[in-house]
Simulated assay, not measured.
Amino acid sequence: MTTVIHTRGEVGATWLVAAAAMAVVTATTLAGNGAVLAALRRAQRAPAHYPLASLAAADLLVGAFVLPIAAARELFIFQLNWAICSCWSTLDVLCCTASILSLCALGWERWCGITAPLSRAKRARQARLYAILVWPVATVVAMPTAFIPSPRHFHPGEVAKACTVNTNVGYVFFSTSFSFYLPASVMVTLYARILYALASLPTIRHHRGRSPVKPDVPKTSPIKNMKAPRTIVFTSPKGCHLNVPNDKTEPTKITKPSESPQNKTSSSSGGILSRQRRATRTIVMLMSLFLVCWTPFFVMLPVDSLCECVRDATWLWCTWLGYTNSALNPLVYAAASPSVRRALHASLTTSSSTRNTDVQLSPSARRT
């Protein structure tokens, strides 16, 4: 028996615009996150790259396996068997959970990068471990959706969709708590502490963990001859004595501020502070984008599981706003992360003979 697939509604301007928008989101998600993963593979490893790769992998899975069926069920009327729908709904929940857990891992790495910037090797090992652990935890949250029955999710006058979203009340509150609300609370708390640490960072960086040393008071040598020029003895930071004649007839050598060790330390600390703020700004942008895109869905889902009062158009807009997050994340990487931007540019411009060559990043990009 042949199954006939019909369009959902008339093929008019609205249907065509919706189909085009869904196709653009899907294609952008696949191309953008694929390019980011290739760029991260080429770039020299940095601690933040492991959770970033986890986030890009989750978004790539969304584009490859979740969005095609999600678009088809909105545009066409058809039915799929239980196995396909179970895999689709499980991947949907798994990838969303992996995304926000990866953002939590990024927040932890940024916190360690600010409070312990010299322990880069240890941070890299722990960041890799946490990026790997994201996926088993996300799987535990997502697996029950394949086995817990869901009530019918359509209203009178609406045609049932293939692979409906699980609206079982118990599972909805379990999944939304561990997929969104608890991780989002942890993430917001982490970034609040990061911003507070950045606000007090210059004082810590200026002395590099050592207490400031009071400058020695200049000592004047005894005057042995009234006609001899007065000599002032200064002590250098290393304990050497510097005799500087104080005669109006002899020019005194003035040390430029840029040559002062204290100014060099200030310049170095300013550079480190700038890099830390730039790296943190990238993660804050990712977090803000995630919350803006997914909060409407995670408010709507529990409400609809309790009252079944959310219309199909609201489901469509809230769900696809969340999916759009997977397409926008690579733009944040490319716009705000120097290391990813350099590697991404090299991935797009390199010749086929040099594809396996690592991209050498600048010292400032490697430190972030």
Rank of each mutant, 00 (worst) to 15 (best):
T3N: 15
W15H: 04
L16T: 04
A18G: 09
A20Y: 04
A21D: 03
A23W: 02
T26H: 00
A27I: 08
T29A: 06
T29P: 02
L30H: 07
A35I: 00
A35V: 01
L37H: 00
A38T: 12
A38E: 10
A39C: 06
L40H: 00
R42Q: 04
Q44D: 09
R45L: 12
A46C: 06
P51S: 04
L52T: 04
L52V: 03
L52Q: 10
S54T: 15
D59Q: 03
L60A: 03
L61K: 09
G63Q: 00
F65I: 06
L67W: 01
A72R: 02
A72I: 02
R73M: 03
F78Q: 04
Q79A: 11
L80H: 07
L91A: 14
D92W: 06
L94G: 08
C95S: 00
C96M: 13
L101R: 09
G107N: 08
I114Q: 01
A116N: 03
R120K: 11
R120C: 03
R125D: 05
Q126E: 00
A127S: 14
R128G: 11
I132A: 08
W135H: 07
W135P: 07
V137I: 08
T139S: 13
T139Y: 09
T139K: 09
V140T: 02
M143P: 04
P144D: 03
S150V: 01
S150E: 01
G157E: 08
T164W: 08
N166R: 01
T176G: 05
F178Y: 08
F180R: 04
P183N: 07
V188F: 08
I194D: 03
Y196L: 12
Y196C: 11
L198Q: 01
L201C: 02
L201Y: 01
I204A: 13
G209S: 04
R210W: 12
R210Q: 13
V213C: 10
P215S: 11
V217N: 09
T220E: 11
T220L: 12
S221I: 15
M226Q: 09
M226A: 15
V233Y: 15
H241T: 11
N246K: 13
K248E: 15
T249I: 14
T252A: 09
K253Y: 08
P257C: 07
S260Q: 05
S260D: 08
Q262S: 12
Q262G: 10
S266V: 13
S268M: 06
S268A: 10
S269K: 06
Q276C: 00
R277Q: 12
I283G: 14
V284S: 07
M285V: 12
M285L: 13
M287Y: 07
M287C: 10
V292Q: 02
V292F: 07
P296F: 06
F297G: 04
L301C: 05
P302E: 11
W315Y: 03
L316P: 03
W320F: 06
W320Y: 03
Y323H: 13
S326F: 00
S326P: 00
N329R: 12
L331N: 14
L331K: 11
A334P: 08
P338M: 14
V340M: 08
V340D: 07
R342S: 11
A343Q: 10
S351N: 05
V359C: 04
